[in-house]
Design a protein around this nucleic acid. Sequence first.
DNA 1: GGTCAAACGGACGGGGTACTCCACTTGGGC
DNA 2: GCCCAAGTGGAGTACCCCGTCCGTTTGACC
Lengths: 221, 221
Amino acid sequence: MRTRSGVEPDEAAGLRADAVRNRNRILEVARKLFAERGLDVPMAAVARHAGVGVATLYRRFPTRESLITEVFADQFAACVSVVDDALADPDPWRGFCTVIERVCAMQAVDRGFSAAVVAAFPGAFDVEQERDRALRGFAELTRRAKENGRLRADFAQDDLTLLLMANCGIIAATAETAPAASRRLVAYLLDGLRAVHAVPAKPLPPPVPLSLHEVFGSPRP
Amino acid sequence: MRTRSGVEPDEAAGLRADAVRNRNRILEVARKLFAERGLDVPMAAVARHAGVGVATLYRRFPTRESLITEVFADQFAACVSVVDDALADPDPWRGFCTVIERVCAMQAVDRGFSAAVVAAFPGAFDVEQERDRALRGFAELTRRAKENGRLRADFAQDDLTLLLMANCGIIAATAETAPAASRRLVAYLLDGLRAVHAVPAKPLPPPVPLSLHEVFGSPRP
DNA sequence: GGTCAAACGGACGGGGTACTCCACTTGGGC
DNA sequence: GCCCAAGTGGAGTACCCCGTCCGTTTGACC
């Protein structure tokens, strides 16, 4: 798993020593606040908790999104490697389940990450790139799992998004029980996603094309 | 289904004619705005669209919650009768499915109602009472459906809440496609809820006690 | 140690929302 | 038609949040 700890490689290059220190404190604090309270923590609160003026925060991260994408870069990278691991599993169905279980679990312990996954900023180069890579990998995984006969054939790519949105809903409405609640939802869903050879239930309603960032598209006239 | 149209029975009693008129316009407008934009529409916006001063709005509905509960009273009542209908169905599993499908569909066409169901204000006499009645009916329904062997035995009461929260998550993250997306989620979930006689999947994680209003419990220090 | 660009912090203007106050208007009983 | 309590609208207050500006401090290179 690729990580960002150690000497900051790229973004912090050329910064003065105190600036790097502050930058790290900001990221650390933001990570914690986002995890606890979600993505709409006031910028001023982040600055205050980091023991830093707002100006410093804004100089390092001109927009809230830039802060968010940097904060969750590790987690997004982790998602990619979750998919990679799963692709290495000889049992594609087990791999498929693992991906969903692990990503949902990551969402459950971090309100901010949960929301970030669903919002999934267009324009954040890094994130977009990694997301696409993860999605391609996941597509391959579903292909194999269907071929293998364990995943129902009418599963659509966009159903992953559906699932993550649903999980996000549970996490948003839930406090310390989020992980347990999420696990239970996931268990039901995975059960619904199995190709059962018993009586097939009614045919599935048609798949829905879902972009991971149409959250921003809600009309506010 | 009990409805509130016609001459306002209780809440509007003793009001002057123009006051009643304004009250209705407020409710009408609020219903539309909540449905489109969710529950956090500014009170001033409601007043403006209703062609009324803010003071008028606040005199009739001192708190936002009082407005919300009044606006969605019909829908909550409709939920009760959905459950009642389902209890009348000789096939308890079909009844069970119908309840979930219909309530989720109601959520899907109304962002505000979707959020209101999950928030489900403690202290709103009416709503609390109706909710409990609906929950009791639903409990009876699940009992019968399990006895009948079509609903998996490890289904817990609180799983309904889980399901509604998940559905709410999809609706919040989705625009005009909400109903279609919701239908698909529900189909998967109901499939996962069936008692399949084929290979049983892994045992379910333990049930989670969920109150329908712990949304307000998120700590903000 | 001296220099200076980089970095800093807090004050500030702009915009938005919740809720109240008060001078004016009006419905409806007489 | 008169009267007055009920009703009304909009201005006003008190927040909270975003993002910038500017006078001051400090790290790093000489």
